[in-house]
């Protein structure tokens, strides 16, 4: 059996007095596609934001590829991780955001190239070649010199995916990537994610409201409710044969 690439161990998260996650235990295998569903406010986005180091867990630990993400050893003791440690451990993680977060002062090509050149120290020609390949793959090979403000939402989101992919992460996080899009643009983005998923090697965690998509792409679906994983399993089982009442009423609202 392969070692999980990500392990959550009894992870809790509160914002002030509000307890958002109340004990998350979760293993993700290399290459596994996990869809996270649940009502808004159930903490699904927080789960992946902690993995991307955008939020710090209140307690518990997250292990990435055998390394403790939020704690590090110092003089034989576990202490809160510093920026350097976070940077080392999160190097294999990529993320696509709900609001794209493209760099508005850079062209599409620069958006993709900058991180490989700056962070991974790839030489410019190589980074450029890979970036162009990736942008062609998401169908934007003709927009290289455009600025993000000149693209549609769906195009922006595809650039954001190319930008994350050129870093060759082992784990990709998708945070409601279609929620900010006009309905007619959702399809093109999901199409790209499907293509990426087919290639297989990369683990993916998708926070989503697109149930059909989850059914189609995911190996496993988690239903998050009230800060805990209330139900999980293969998509067909969770989405079609679950007896969890909360899950059924949640799904019911979507199918109306």
């Amino acid at each position: 059996m392969t070692e999980p690439i990500v392990m959550y161990k009894d992870v809790h998260k509160s914002f002030g007095d509000v307890s958002v996650l109340r004990g998350i235990d979760l293993d993700i295998k290399p290459g596994e596609k996990v869809a996270v569903i649940g009502p808004s406010g159930s903490g699904k986005t927080t789960i992946i934001r902690m993995l991307m180091t955008l939020e710090q867990p209140t307690s518990g630990s997250i292990i990435v590829d055998g390394k403790n993400l939020w704690q590090m050893e110092k003089g034989g003791q576990l202490v809160p991780a510093n920026e350097k440690h976070l940077r080392e451990v999160r190097g294999d993680i990529g993320m696509v955001f709900q609001h794209f977060n493209l760099f508005p002062h850079m062209t599409i090509l620069e958006n993709c190239m900058t991180a490989p050149v700056q962070v991974k120290k790839e030489d410019k020609a190589t980074a450029k070649k890979h970036s162009i390949e990736m942008l062609e793959k998401v169908g934007l090979g003709d927009k290289l010199d455009n600025y993000p403000s000149q693209l549609s939402g769906g195009q922006k989101q595809r650039v954001a995916m190319a930008r994350a992919l050129v870093m060759r992460p082992k784990i990709m996080l998708f945070d409601e990537v279609t929620s900010a899009l006009d309905p007619e643009l959702v399809g093109e983005v999901l199409e790209v994610i499907r293509d990426i998923a087919k290639e297989g090697e990369m683990a993916m965690v998708l926070v989503t409201h697109e149930m059909d998509f989850a059914l189609d792409v995911a190996d496993r679906v988690l239903f998050l409710d009230n800060g805990v994983i209330a139900e999980q399993g293969p998509p067909s089982q969770v989405l079609e044969h679950s007896e969890n009442e909360r899950l059924q009423s949640f799904l019911h609202r979507f199918r109306k």
Partner: peptide, 16 residues
């Protein structure tokens, strides 16, 4: 705020 988050997600150093 998203720009800071994207910078973290792409693992830029503080200086970068």
């Amino acid at each position: 705020k998203g720009q800071w988050e994207a910078s973290r997600a792409l693992n830029f150093s503080t200086r970068q």
